[in-house]
Design a protein around this nucleic acid. Structure first.
Lengths: 214, 214
DNA sequence: CCTACCGATCGGTAGG
DNA sequence: CCTACCGATCGGTAGG
């Protein structure tokens, strides 16, 4: 009787991606070897090559699965309601949450993109552009004048992504600030600057005059 | 008679660093080889090893020379005067200018730090902490309440560095926005949010009410 | 400052 | 004739 596909085929494929994400995040794409990946998966190199045709295919799958999750979240939210400010708050909060829930994949997505072959890198970049467009749209809704100044709108959008994507280099979810607080911090600064912050010393009674105008 | 040091010793060392910065920025530390570096310098691998004991030493020198330039700029400015807002404006502007004037070294500093051996990485990180401290100090001067909320001050400072460091991934000095405009954009958002922006459509006459309060 | 090499390890593939 | 998986090793190249 012919052998059929292993019943745990999908789980095995996914397990390889999980270990690859961790390894690529820690040692970089070029610094991590297939031999190490196989060892992490407690299997052989040949088994890895049975599931994926090449090392670059593994890198691509790690990134594609993660950017897909981000894109799906954005699509879900775009059907939502609420004020543009509330929507941006929600969107940034979900970005941070997805970043925290897949730290290795997020780091790989941001740091190893240039090691993908051109065609596949463009596929990922195309997905990322959708994320950028969703944020740009909300910023233009919140501050309509920006809609008439596309270059500045793009720059402001990228500055916002800079705030949240750079968190991979310093933020720890178990620190003094929670992921939700971090998201609120980023959106508040984007919309109102430090003047809009709810700072500890102000919580005791002195109202922040800038908060009144929102 | 014993050979003396080549008269162009320093220039050669520096030329190697320039080519290494470009190569490491483009292919990554692990993706670039010493043979490639030698070819770029139109010399042999052995000559490279005459000037530097190891590949990691070259990486370290690329980063150290650049972070030193950033630290010296900060030291110079810390003796300066002007309002805290003007000082932050000036500081961020100089950061962006130094980033643009050494794009490869800046990219290597941000992207390849984890490939340095621990001790040398800590030396670089120590220098970077001085840069962070200078920005934190100015933010606390501008918004005194933050000085009493260290955790939030740190977070806000890192969000600002996120805005300016992330520019390596999207900003081109020859685009529609100049480096000076970019610096002003980042500081304005940090201090006043998008509401504080001087947007094109507002320049024609409608004053921005939030600008009045600064 | 070069060519000639080294020990090791790379990504990927062979036969069974 | 298919897919699943192993131990061993391929041709090249890495840093030194």
């Amino acid at each position: 009787m012919a052998r059929t596909q292993a019943s745990d085929y999908d789980q095995r494929r996914e397990a390889i991606l999980d270990h690859a994400a961790e390894l690529f995040a820690r040692k970089g794409f070029n610094g991590a070897s297939i031999a190490e990946l196989a060892a992490a998966c407690k299997t052989s190199k040949s088994l890895i090559y049975h599931y994926y045709p090449s090392k670059e295919d593994i890198l691509y799958e790690v990134m594609a699965s993660h950017v897909e999750a981000l894109a799906e979240m954005v699509e879900t939210l775009e059907k939502g309601s609420g004020s543009p400010r509330a929507q941006l708050d929600e969107l940034i909060g979900r970005f941070i949450a997805l970043y925290m829930g897949a730290k290795s994949r997020q780091k790989v997505l941001l740091d190893e993109l240039e090691y993908l072959p051109d065609a596949r890198r463009e596929a990922i970049v195309g997905q990322q552009r959708q994320l950028v467009a969703a944020v740009s749209k909300l910023l233009a809704d919140i501050h309509p004048a920006l809609a008439n100044d596309k270059k500045q709108l793009t720059a402001v959008t990228m500055l916002l992504f800079g705030m949240i994507n750079w968190t991979k280099n310093w933020f720890h979810a178990d620190g003094a600030i929670s992921p939700q607080q971090l998201a609120k911090l980023a959106t508040t600064i984007m919309l109102d600057g430090v003047g809009g912050l709810d700072v500890a010393s102000l919580k005791t009674g002195v109202p922040n005059p800038r908060m009144r105008q929102i």
